[in-house]
């Protein structure tokens, strides 16, 4: 058999191409989503534990490190959400009769759902 020259990309491939790095950012930001969820659950636990625990938690979250961390969470979660919404029409190709729903409508539907859920949460919390 004729010799073949084999090639493989390196283990750090996500840093070797712009589109791969953008993919990496979309995926890696899920860690911040999980971290924010942990903070949020601890917040809920503090509410459940009573006024003193709640006040302690709020005080702790007012410290500069907590504010900086939450700013980072906000940017990461926003990026994660937007990039997934952009990707959504690939996974969902709904058809109404003999016409496919345009990708922009699928993305708009996701944003609408996001707004509705956020508004619902605001209504419950405030």
């Amino acid at each position: 058999m004729t010799k073949r020259y084999e090639r493989q990309i390196p283990g750090w491939w996500v840093f070797t191409k712009k589109t791969w790095f953008v993919f990496f950012l979309r995926e890696i930001t899920c860690i911040f989503v999980a971290l924010f969820a942990i903070f949020y659950l601890r917040f809920a636990r503090a509410i459940y534990a009573g006024p003193e625990a709640y006040a302690d938690y709020v005080e702790k979250m007012r410290e500069p490190w907590a504010i900086a961390l939450h700013c980072l969470f906000f940017v990461a979660v926003l990026w994660h959400t937007i990039t997934w919404f952009v990707a959504a029409p690939k996974a969902m190709r709904p058809r109404i009769g003999n016409k496919l729903v345009p990708p922009r409508a699928v993305i708009a539907g996701h944003y609408a759902g996001w707004l509705v859920v956020s508004a619902g949460l605001m209504w419950i919390l405030l």
Binding site: K17, T19, W20, F23, A87, K90, A91, M92, R93
Partner: peptide, 26 residues
């Protein structure tokens, strides 16, 4: 597939294999 999406970006016929794979998962 981790849904990098470059397969669809380079497709000269706009087949969108990345989309097909995600639909296959569903």
């Amino acid at each position: 597939c981790t849904f990098v999406g470059d397969c669809s970006r380079v497709c000269p016929k706009h087949v969108d294999p990345a989309g097909a794979i995600q639909q296959g998962k569903a």
